[in-house]
Design a protein around this nucleic acid. Structure first.
Lengths: 123, 123
DNA sequence: TTGACATACTGTATGACGCATACTATAATA
DNA sequence: TATTATAGTATGCGTCATACAGTATGTCAA
C-alpha cells in the first residue's frame, strides 16, 4: 500500500480526463469567465485547476467551439466565453457519446439496467 | 462541416480514454487472453484496437495489477491475463470513482436524478 | 497615504503519460 | 496461397498536471 493510492489517483485522473471537455461545454451555454467556471464546477463536485482550465478554453476557442470577448466594464477585466453554434452542436453530440459510453460501461460492470437488451443475449 | 466530424471523433476518443482501464479490469476477473478480450469488449459495444490493448495489458501487468502466464497446451500459444489482488482492489476503487464521476457529470448536464440533493440547493 | 498582504483573475512553459496509428511477425486453417 | 487468430513494437500527437508569472482590486493597519 502507498503505491496503490498513487496509482489510483493517476487512474482516477485519467478517468476524468476525457470528460473535462464535456463538463466545460455543458456550463457554457451561458456566458462565463474562467475563474467563475472553476468555482461553478467545484460547486458541482468537479475540481479543476485554473492552469488546466485556461489552456483548455484556448483550445476550444481555437477550434471555434467557443466565442470569447473581453469585458472591461466590470471591476476587473474578464474574458467571457460562450458556446458557438458549432459548440452547441458538439455539446449535443458529445452528450450522446457520453450516454452511449455510460451504457456500455455499466454493461461491462455487470449492471444491466432492467435488462432492456438492445440485442438478444448470447453465450 | 467535415471538420466537425473529425473533432467529434477525437473528442469522443478522449471521452472513452480514461475508461479503458476500468473496462479492461472489469473483464479480467476471469482469466482471458488479449485477442479474446478484444472480441468480448466489442460484443459489449466497446471497440478497442489490438495495438491499443496489448500495450495496456503490459502496463497493467508492470504495475502488478494483472498476472499473466503463457498457455501452450492449446492450439496456439496464448498469454492469459487475470486480476491480481491489487487489481481486484483497484477495480473496486475505480468503480467507485466511476460512479462518482457519473453523478457529477449528470449533474453538470442538468439531469438531477430524482433530486436526492446531497446538500441544499443554493443560487 | 503609504505600505503590506490577500484575493480575483488571466495567462505561459514544461514534462509525463496514454492512446491511436502503422507496422512486424508467426501459427493454424481453409 | 490467402485468411484468420494471436502477439507484439515504435512513434507521434494531444492532453492534463504542476509550477510559475503577472496584473488588478480590496482591505486593513500605521
Amino acid at each position: 500500500m502507498g503505491e496503490n493510492e498513487t496509482t489510483l489517483g493517476a487512474l482516477a485522473s485519467e478517468l476524468r480526463r476525457g470528460t473535462l471537455v464535456l463538463s466545460v461545454l455543458s456550463q457554457l451555454e451561458e456566458r462565463r469567465y474562467g475563474y467563475s467556471l472553476v468555482q461553478r464546477l467545484a460547486e458541482r463536485g468537479l475540481d479543476v485547476d485554473q492552469s488546466t482550465l485556461y489552456p483548455l478554453l484556448r483550445r476550444l476557442e481555437e477550434r471555434q467551439l467557443l466565442d470569447s470577448d473581453w469585458s472591461l466594464e466590470e471591476s476587473r477585466p474578464r474574458r467571457y466565453y460562450v458556446l458557438s453554434a458549432a459548440g452547441r452542436q458538439l455539446l449535443a453530440d458529445l452528450t450522446k457519446e457520453w450516454d452511449r459510453m455510460v451504457e456500455v460501461q455499466e454493461r461491462l460492470l455487470g449492471r444491466s439496467p432492467t435488462g432492456s437488451g438492445t440485442k438478444e443475449e448470447k453465450e
